[in-house]
């Protein structure tokens, strides 16, 4: 590879970096969503993927479309906001929650749960099933939030692809489920419709972890694989927000690859399960 093409490659990357800055600034100025403190490497990948899917030549072109067409902004939010998820994703996490967090919740007359970054709802329905099997669903006040209304609308429906159900059934069994998973949904053609009572009492709302504050005090907060998309500065903000929103003795569940590394309150937690990243607020 010659020096010339190395310079080309470096220049192309520089141009893209400028385009990313302009895009994020444009979106922030016009629509108020601030993605500037998202982790640059994964944001860059997702932006490139959006270009590919939309068949666009550059981020400048995407910016133009987003500025002139609010519907394009909606599509952008959906494309950004839907990462990989599954019901009972990481069965070991839900097993640990069942064995170690449920006993703490059982002692309370009632408790509040916050799904921070609920995406398309898989986690909300998974936890609902777990709580029902532990006899705790009537005592739970559940809040599920995400950045975009479009994503929340999808989550609320509780409709998933039938072909995913086999994997979910397997996850459910490994998560310590004591019933039959098919009991919780109705199959219709290629769709699986979750039992409506599982989510009937859930408060669904938009909430932006980048800019919004604490809105209640919770006994269980799940914020799994959300902060991995944020840079250290924004992670610190969100960790502070989660700490502020947790009751004393409240439980925080993170993703398996996450930690309290970026939390200014790391020493205020005790690990309830080290490998599943479940923590209790102790001070």
């Amino acid at each position: 590879m010659g020096e010339g093409s190395e310079a080309d490659s470096a220049r192309q990357q520089e141009v893209e970096a400028v385009e990313v800055r302009l895009l994020l600034e444009g979106i922030r100025s016009l629509y108020g969503y601030d993605f500037r403190d998202y982790a640059p490497a994964s944001l860059g990948r997702r932006l490139r993927k959006i270009l590919e899917e939309e068949g666009l030549p550059s981020l400048s072109r995407l910016l133009e479309m987003i500025l002139h067409d609010p519907a394009q902004m909606g599509r952008f939010l959906i494309a950004l906001a839907v990462p990989t998820t599954a019901m009972f994703r990481d069965p070991g996490f839900f097993l640990a929650l069942r064995q170690k967090a449920v006993p703490l919740l059982k002692d309370l007359p009632f408790f509040r749960v916050w799904h921070a970054g609920c995406s398309t709802g898989e986690e909300v329905y998974s936890l609902a099933i777990l709580l029902e099997e532990e006899g705790l669903l009537p005592k739970a006040r559940r809040y599920a939030t995400d950045l975009s209304q479009e994503v929340i609308d999808k989550a609320k429906e509780g409709i998933f692809a039938a072909k995913a159900m086999q994997a979910y059934t397997n996850n459910y069994a490994r998560s310590g489920g004591h019933g039959s998973f098919s009991h919780y949904y109705t199959a219709k053609h290629d769709l699986a419709i979750m039992r409506p009572d599982l989510a009937r009492e859930v408060v669904w709302a938009t909430h932006n972890l980048v800019s919004d504050g604490s809105f209640n005090e919770f006994n269980l907060i799940l914020c799994r694989n959300v902060m991995i998309y944020f840079n250290p500065k924004l992670q610190e903000r969100v960790h502070h927000l989660l700490y502020d929103s947790l009751a004393m003795g409240g439980v925080l569940g993170l993703g398996r690859g996450e930690s309290l590394l970026g939390s200014p309150h790391a020493d205020c937690y005790r690990a309830l399960d080290v490998s599943e990243k479940i923590f209790v607020k102790v001070k």
Binding site: A41, R45, P83, N231, E258
Partner: peptide, 20 residues
């Protein structure tokens, strides 16, 4: 790289993602 995560380099640190 941990199981079921992509591993990325972001400046002077690593980052993880659960993208496709």
């Amino acid at each position: 790289a941990p199981n079921d995560y992509h591993l990325l380099v972001d400046g002077d640190h690593y980052a993880l993602s659960v993208d496709e």
